[in-house]
Amino acid sequence: MAADSYKHILVVTDGLRTSDGVHETALNLAREHGATVTLASSVQEPGVISKLLSPNSKGVFEMVIADKQQRLDTCARQFAAAGIEAKSRVLIGKSSAAIVKEAVESEADLVIRYRKGTMSKSSGSFGSTAKSLMRYCPVPVLFVGDQPVNNPKVLACVDVQHGENENSSILQNAAALGREAERLEAMYCWEFYHADMIEKQMEAKAFRDIVDLSRTVHEKEFQRFKGSHDLSGFAKLRIEEGAVEVVIPKVCESDKIDVVVMCSATLNHPLKRYFGSTIESVVERIPCSLLVVKPAGFVSPLVKPVSTTTAE
């Protein structure tokens, strides 16, 4: 996605939240980008057992839909009062799949959501739906933290081991959020893996030499990366050594970062992994909002491919 600006934003809400920053963030970004907004909430149909045990399950289901739609309509009127074109709809189905389907079919270029539902049983600060969206949503998803996002200071976490698509998506979306250069940073973090174990197996000088060599290689790769991307809009470019789950939260605190941008899938990995170990180790420790992106060409397994077969 060449995210110079966001044109259509999908705001996922349960209609109960008025102070968690999601609505205010959506208002801020919609105003700034001149975007239209769809407010959505999902509800899952009752299963076979529920229908058998509760003859009135259909009636209850319809009541839930009506209640959600009423709440969404109220939210949409608030956006309209602010001069933003907004519509609302209740999504039917499992939350993550329904959100991904709506994001793709409505051609949204940004999804905004809270980290964890009020009824979530998941441990940690992200619920199961949030983690599923990190893995499978092809559209960038902004998980709003404790504070609404407004003129944010943004940290783009690139990886020189990624392909061009992954890093381009990170940088483009970071620039779309932090539209002023002085509020944009890009960082590459590397770690000498298993250093503690390897150090015990080597002489001190030999170990220092191999770490120095590794540092030189990473610094050269970062220089190559800077030369192959337009980073003129970023006020600060940095390379940091250490575990990402330690370094990224530390930089967020020291530089007062409002949004971290990371990529949760890579196309050049032999298994085309989703929600890689790097982002998994970091997300629970990030003290601010998180924007998770995918590389161009990412195809979600939750989206059914369009059949090209023609009838004979």
Rank of each mutant, 00 (worst) to 15 (best):
G242C: 11
P46W: 03
T129L: 08
R77L: 14
L91H: 01
V158Y: 10
L237N: 03
V259F: 10
P148C: 05
A66W: 12
K272W: 07
C157D: 07
R183V: 07
P295N: 09
E32M: 08
Q70A: 13
V100I: 08
E199N: 08
F192S: 00
L72C: 09
A186G: 04
L155I: 10
V246W: 10
F222W: 12
S50P: 11
E221W: 00
A195G: 06
N167P: 15
P295S: 07
M197I: 15
K101Q: 12
R71M: 14
V144L: 11
P138Q: 12
A103K: 00
Y188I: 02
P148K: 05
K226L: 09
V43Y: 08
A76N: 05
N28A: 15
E284H: 08
K7F: 14
K226S: 07
A81E: 14
G117T: 01
L171M: 10
K7G: 15
L53T: 13
K205Y: 08
V282N: 04
H23T: 11
R31L: 13
Q69R: 09
H194L: 13
I248C: 04
C137T: 03
S41R: 01
Q223M: 14
E185T: 11
A176C: 09
D255C: 11
E24H: 06
P270N: 11
S169Y: 02
L291Y: 06
A108L: 05
A66V: 00
D159Q: 00
L271H: 13
C189I: 15
L142K: 01
A296N: 01
S214C: 08
E241S: 11
A35S: 15
F275Y: 09
L231P: 08
R238L: 03
E45A: 09
E240T: 13
Q69C: 02
K304F: 07
E62C: 00
V261D: 03
R273W: 13
P249D: 00
S264R: 02
Y188Q: 05
T25R: 06
